[in-house]
């Protein structure tokens, strides 16, 4: 069924339901992110949304240095999801300095200041 929502609103609707949903191209089969009305790989507008597996790894990472009185240092990373797309995110649950490239991640919907957001933590096991 045709969605009544634009791609950004549809993605955010998923997040508000605790789901990371991603558009996949019906023609070339590739996922993409950020959500848009055409596949950036082949230009097709035939897209179907799928729920992401919620797994990935750190593609690259940085620690943003901040004074302790302002909240201290925090992580900003690029997570590569198992679906093959990358997005900016943050690894929680460990010190920013312990976030390493290649580290396997669990990717989940958390919140940042009350806004639903894709966040990560080190994969268990």
């Amino acid at each position: 069924m045709e969605s009544a929502l634009g791609p950004d609103a549809k993605f955010r609707e998923g997040l508000s339901n605790g789901q990371i949903n991603l558009p996949q191209c019906d023609d070339c089969g590739k996922f993409h992110f950020f959500p848009r009305i055409n596949c950036p790989h082949c230009g097709s507008t035939a897209l179907t949304w799928h729920r992401a597996l919620g797994t990935g790894e750190v593609h690259t990472t940085t620690t943003v240095r901040r004074r302790p009185e302002s909240g201290g240092d925090y992580n900003v990373c690029m997570v590569e999801l198992t679906e093959g797309v990358r997005m900016m995110s943050r690894v929680d649950g460990i010190l920013p300095a312990d976030v390493k490239i290649g580290m396997p991640l669990a990717v989940f919907v958390g919140d940042i200041d009350g806004t639903p957001a894709v966040l990560c933590k080190p994969a268990e096991g």
Binding site: T60, V64, V76, M78, A117
Partner: peptide, 17 residues
Amino acid sequence: LYSPRYPISGYALAAAR
């Protein structure tokens, strides 16, 4: 949403990789 500090965070991500 993740409060990267621009432009430095972008270049830091490239340097780290």
